[in-house]
Nucleic acid binder design. Structure first.
Lengths: 241, 241
DNA sequence: CGTCCAATAATGTGATCACAAATTCAAAAT
DNA sequence: ATTTTGAATTTGTGATCACATTATTGGACG
C-alpha cells in the first residue's frame, strides 16, 4: 500500500514513542492546529445537519474519518460540548442533543433578541461590496432551494445571516449567536429532510431591501420575521413528529 | 517522601506504560471525571477573579497545582476557551482575555437582555424555602462586604443571581448567561481589588422585595438596576485605569 | 423463535512520550 | 549599563498506551 498524499495526513504506521524520523510539518506560517481543523469540520457538519440527533458519535470513528489521531478529536468535541452543539450522555457517549419544547422556545427567544440587534449594528458597515456578497449568497440559496439541495440551502442560509452579523463587529454577541445556531441547526435538517425545500420561502428579500435603503428598523423587522417563519416551520413539525 | 493521602490524587512516580499495579479507583458511583473537577476548579477561580487578565496560564502549572496530569487540564482549558472564559493567544499561550470598550458594552447588552428574563421566568418557581436560601446568600454578601472579603463577595453575588436564574428552568438561556459572567468577572475583581468593597451598595433588597410580592415587573427592574450599577462601577474605572 | 448470559470488542479517560516553537536567562559584545 | 545572542528550559500539540466501563455479539437454554 502506497499511502502517500498530503504530507500532514495522519498515518498510524509511522508513529511510535521512539520515532526519529518525523512526518513533515508544513512550514506554512498560517498553519492551523489539527484540532482546529477537526473542530471546523465537525462544526460545519453539525450546521448542515450531518449528525442525527441522539445518535452516538465516537471519537475514534471521527478520527479515522478525518485522518487524525483521536487526540485532536477529543479537544474539538470537548469544545463543541461547551458550545452545546454536542452533548455528553450519562453513559459517556457523545451525540447531538435532542430538541425539546422548552429548549426550542428558549432558542427562539435568544434568536429574536440577539439577531436583530446584530443586524442593526451591522447595517452602517455594509458597503456596496458587502451588499453584493450578501446578494450573491441569497442567489445561491435560491438555486439550492430550486434543486432541492438541503445541505447547500442550510449552508447558504447560515452564511447569509452570519455575513451580515459579522459586520456588526460585535464578537461577543456573535459568539452567543453561533452557539444558538449550533443548537437548532440539526433540527432544521430533520424537518427539511422530511418535506424537502419546496415549502421554503425566501424571506431575505425584505432584509436586502432594508439594507439598500439603510433602514435599520425595517432590517430588524425583516430578520425577526425570517427567524419566526423558519422556526415556526421547525416548531410545528419537529416537536410533534 | 511518604506522599500518601487521597487515593485519587495523582502521583507521577507510580505511572508508566508498563504499569501493572494501578492506583485505586474510588468505587464512588457519583464519581466525576478529573477534567470535570479541574473545570469546576478553574471556573470558580475565574469567577472570583483568581486570574490576572493577560497573564499567561500554563497547562503543566495548573496540573501540578491541582495534582493531576496535564491531560485533564487540556480538556478543561479547551472547554473554558470555548466559553470565552479563557483566550488562546497567537503564541499559543492561554490567559484570561483583556477587557475592551466594545466588549464591555456587548456584555452589558447581553446581561440586560438575558438576566431580567431569567428572573421573570424564575419568579413563579421561587417558593418559601428557595426565598430563604436567597436571603441567606444576601446576608452572606453583606458580611463579606463588611469584612472586605472580595472573593467571598464575588462568590456570594454569583450565587445570589444564579440561585434565582436556575429556578427559571431555562437551561439554554442559563448557559449563555454563565458564559457572559465568565467574561466580566475577572474584571470585577480588578476593580474591587483597587477600591475595596467599601463603596459597594447592596442592590439586592429591591429584588428580594419584588420576589416576596411576586411582582415580576419590579423584579426585572431590580435586576436590571443591579446590573447597571455594578457594571457602571466597573466600566468607569477599569477601562480608563 | 425469543431470552438470558458470558465472552468479546469498542469506547472514553487519564497518563506518558516526543518534538517544535516559544520563552527565559546568562554571558558576551557594544 | 544596555543590548544582543545563543544555549537551556518550558510549553503546547499530537500520538500512543493502559485500563475501566459500556456495547455488542454469539450461543445455550427455555
Amino acid at each position: 500500500m502506497k499511502m502517500s498524499g498530503v504530507a500532514s495526513r495522519y498515518n498510524p504506521d509511522v508513529h511510535g514513542p521512539k520515532l526519529k524520523e518525523r512526518l513533515m510539518r508544513d512550514a506554512d506560517p498560517a498553519a492551523v492546529s489539527a484540532h482546529e481543523r477537526v473542530y471546523q469540520s465537525l462544526r460545519q457538519r453539525i450546521l448542515t445537519g450531518g449528525f442525527l440527533p441522539g445518535k452516538a458519535v465516537t471519537l475514534r470513528g471521527i478520527a479515522t474519518q478525518l485522518g487524525v489521531s483521536p487526540m485532536p478529536v477529543r479537544e474539538a468535541v470537548r469544545r463543541l460540548i461547551a458550545e452545546r452543539a454536542l452533548e455528553l450522555q450519562d453513559n459517556r457517549r457523545v451525540s447531538v442533543p435532542a430538541m425539546t419544547g422548552p429548549k426550542f422556545e428558549q432558542i427562539l427567544f435568544a434568536r429574536r433578541t440577539l439577531e436583530p440587534e446584530l443586524a442593526i449594528r451591522a447595517l452602517p458597515h455594509i458597503d456596496a461590496a458587502a451588499l453584493a456578497r450578501i446578494e450573491a449568497l441569497d442567489d445561491g440559496i435560491d438555486r439550492a432551494m430550486a434543486s432541492g439541495d438541503i445541505e447547500g440551502y442550510m449552508r447558504g442560509n447560515h452564511d447569509f445571516h452570519f455575513t451580515i452579523y459579522r459586520l456588526a463587529d460585535a464578537d461577543m454577541l456573535l459568539g452567543l449567536t453561533e452557539s444558538v445556531w449550533l443548537q437548532f441547526a440539526p433540527f432544521m435538517r430533520l424537518v427539511y429532510g422530511r418535506y424537502g425545500t419546496s415549502k421554503l420561502i425566501d424571506q431575505h428579500m425584505l432584509a436586502l431591501e432594508a439594507i439598500r435603503k439603510g433602514d435599520a428598523v425595517s432590517l430588524a423587522k425583516a430578520i425577526r420575521e425570517d427567524i419566526m417563519q423558519g422556526m415556526r416551520f421547525i416548531g410545528e413539525d419537529a416537536l410533534k413528529g
